[in-house]
Design a protein around this nucleic acid. Sequence first.
DNA 1: TCAGTTATGGTCAAGTTGACCATAACTATG
DNA 2: CATAGTTATGGTCAACTTGACCATAACTGA
Lengths: 236, 236
Amino acid sequence: MYLSSANVSERQAAPPSLAISTVIFALRPSESSGRPTLWLPLVRRIREPFKGLWALPGGPLSHSESLQDAASRNLRETTGLAPSYLEQLYAFGGLHRSPTQRVVSIVYWALVQPTEAALADESENVRWFRADRLGELAFDHNAIVDYALWRLRNKLAYGSVAYHLLGEYFTLAQVREVYEAVLDRQLDPANFRRQLKSTPEIEETGEYLQGGKHRPPRLYRFTGRPGLDPDNRSTL
Amino acid sequence: MYLSSANVSERQAAPPSLAISTVIFALRPSESSGRPTLWLPLVRRIREPFKGLWALPGGPLSHSESLQDAASRNLRETTGLAPSYLEQLYAFGGLHRSPTQRVVSIVYWALVQPTEAALADESENVRWFRADRLGELAFDHNAIVDYALWRLRNKLAYGSVAYHLLGEYFTLAQVREVYEAVLDRQLDPANFRRQLKSTPEIEETGEYLQGGKHRPPRLYRFTGRPGLDPDNRSTL
DNA sequence: TCAGTTATGGTCAAGTTGACCATAACTATG
DNA sequence: CATAGTTATGGTCAACTTGACCATAACTGA
């Protein structure tokens, strides 16, 4: 018996509780191929419901913070990370998301750069998983991750989000690898580079990436700003 | 003095309240030109804060309904309308949206067909306004409508939403008028029709629209399904 | 009957995209 | 120290898409 002590009528009287969760994506080299792959951190449930299962990092909304601030905070608290991109994903409010009470979750999604991601805290109860190899998660979190992946692929196709998975300087081949990892298909290097070169937000630097095994590629820098959500409109 | 009786510490102790609002769009002929234009229904605030100002229809989330159901319900209750399209827009949760308490609003946007819209209830406290001629609205509702308009224009450019502003049968010129009204620019009739004819979801019927002043246009029908939000994925 | 107007089909040039080829520039290895 | 291997980079070509524009069809109303 692991239901909360509230009975049915008490539960209906209480307002639906409001939580913030975040789907955090970062690139890490795959163990097998070494190519960059999408990973995300999950936290282990230490209480019922779904005790022992992995879940998205999240928590309640505190009073003095905006929704986005709450997402930033639980991202920092669970993983120690600061996101380079953070956007609202969706508000999930189905009646039976949690067996014990009605919860409305406002979910954000975030991208972190690989230098950051390498430093991320990992522990008994916080672990990174490949986005394409999650097991069964708590609540409706599998569906949420699926939707976040769909959104990531979409945003990638449009424009400016790929660079937030990379460091400040990058080669065009690294950008292509991001696309290949997220979209899960090969892209023609020459055609891909032609497209990138035609976007004015990608700036050529004078530098080259040294230390590789082959011809050293030129380094580029992204100079665009992310699109404007309602949350971010004021910050311009 | 129109603050609620709660003092600051009491306000901070109470959880942020959760509300659902809806931006409802419909096409109506402009009074001046007679061409179709975007309109939306607003309700007058009869209480503080913002008493007397116009606001988006909305209300609290009841316990036994999903977020989308709540949006449908307050749409029906305030305007008597059933939407042909309904999608979550955004969750607005800034700290100072309401001067009296912390409110998180999950906002939906809806499209209704003109036959429905013509029957919509209108009263002292519910009135339709041209989307491009709203005055100052209560709360942050001007910003919310702006964002909803932005989303509508976007979705229109992609694909399938225009038809939800029209009846079951329509001419290609009517579709073009929808685009012209929403995007607020003229489109070349010949090029526009070429694009529509290349989309397989638009089906030619044998019928023609009679009674016009000129050559009778052929009637078409839309056979596509709207895209899949998290809310609508199960319905397939 | 014809002038006015919308519906509809077509052409053409400019731009974009995917498939593919060729050369440049580096490392590693014999 | 030459050369094979590999990635970086630039280019071509045909198919397709897009916007500007022209022409004809088909109806109404005078």
